[in-house]
Design a protein around this nucleic acid. Structure first.
Lengths: 221, 221
DNA sequence: ATATTTTTTTAGATTAATCTAAAATTTAAT
DNA sequence: ATTAAATTTTAGATTAATCTAAAAAAATAT
């Protein structure tokens, strides 16, 4: 069995591995778990004993296949519950993360499968993140950041890579929701900020910081 | 804040208090929490410091108003989630207890209220137990046990006072579900077992042990 | 190549929840 | 009203997860 705490470590190691595609450092894990490096060292030793990670002192950590399977199950549950909260209970996309952080640790395979079915086997969560299937398989979607798009291009918003409530609220207020069309009108060289026109024809100023966290797909002409 | 563990203690003290309507003994709590009396003593001291229970050494324990409010919130969540699992996800009534034991500790007022609304503000859970409202108010329903019903009487099944999966499966197999009509045909004096006829006209033998755990309401003629 | 800085690990404590064994208190029985 | 039995509490350990401070290792800079 994996504890609530162990699951959180695995989830975070998974996330960091996916970003960097190499060994994950103790400090990086400490930052996301909101603990100290000393605590992480302890936990990595323990996860290593349980065959959930490959860990060599001072050399960083990687998930084993087993560890990755556990992490993907937690991520699957997190994302399915987020869909439930938004689609069925009417929460906004900026309100569901904290609750899903709790629900993701509920332990019942049967529950997950029935929830999946109840929701109509969704493929993406309310932030556009893909939902792993029962076998932990999740399509790797290679979207671009809005910050990489050149002037004149049209794109569709497919996801966000930052999930804080303030960020999500800011986007919603601007009308930036999943699926919306964006045309890059101007790129301001000095700070890389953008002027964009949305599908509803409204114009907006988007900072580079924000643009980096918007995942988009080019529209094929 | 109350921990997962503290909430379980409060819930169990609530249950035992409701049954006996007097101070609850350390041993009784130990039995239901599946811990030892020594552990319970420790926890009672701690809950007492937090003003959640009134506790005098060697004299048993009672919930304070605060403690009762917390217990009722947990019970509300447990029963609402059970309704969700049965009504929305299609679980049987004997499959939901363990899962609800986990879900009842999810901490979000907003979630509970929205879930309640989503379910249509149910008044009873799948076992016939009443669901406390937002304010912790729960009608006290004075049903009779089937074991107290005399020969010739007609009753409707309103609930069960035993929630184990085996018991619930046994009832379901016999056709004893909430709302079903029962006529007591015979009382066998030597073991107090009953012969009954159900609404579907099937006849059944019911042991005293089972009859004691069936909550019924007389039909007014 | 050595010294300095940064990162990581170890050592030793702390907190929550539990346990066993022993002591204290209450209840029951003669 | 004692004594015996049952219940409850305390004392002292244990486990999981965390911490701070110090030591060790790795990375960086001169």
């Amino acid at each position: 069995m994996t504890s609530f705490t162990e699951e959180n470590y695995l989830k975070i190691i998974y996330k960091l591995s996916a970003e960097t595609d190499s060994e994950v450092s103790t400090n990086a894990v400490a930052e996301l778990t909101l603990t100290k490096a000393a605590s992480v060292s302890d936990m990595l030793r323990k996860l290593s004993e349980k065959q959930l990670v490959n860990y060599q002192k001072y050399q960083g950590v990687r998930l084993t296949e087993l560890g990755e399977a556990v992490a993907l199950k937690v991520i699957r549950k997190h994302r399915l519950w987020e869909v439930f909260l938004v689609e069925k209970l009417g929460f906004n996309w900026d309100e569901v993360h904290e609750i899903a952080e709790q629900l993701e640790h509920i332990d019942s395979e049967e529950l997950v499968e029935r929830l999946d079915e109840f929701l109509g086997f969704p493929k993406f969560d309310p932030h556009g993140d893909p939902i792993p299937d029962t076998f932990g398989i999740m399509p790797e979607l290679r979207y671009q950041n809005l910050s990489e798009i050149s002037v004149g291009q049209s794109v569709v918003m497919m996801g966000v890579s930052e999930h804080s409530a303030t960020f999500l609220q800011y986007l919603a207020k601007m009308g930036l929701t999943l699926g919306c069309h964006i045309v890059v009108k101007e790129l301001n060289d000095f700070d890389k900020s953008l002027n964009v026109k949305l599908g509803d024809l409204s114009n907006h100023f988007i900072s580079h910081e924000v643009a980096k966290n918007l995942l988009v797909k080019s529209i094929k002409n």
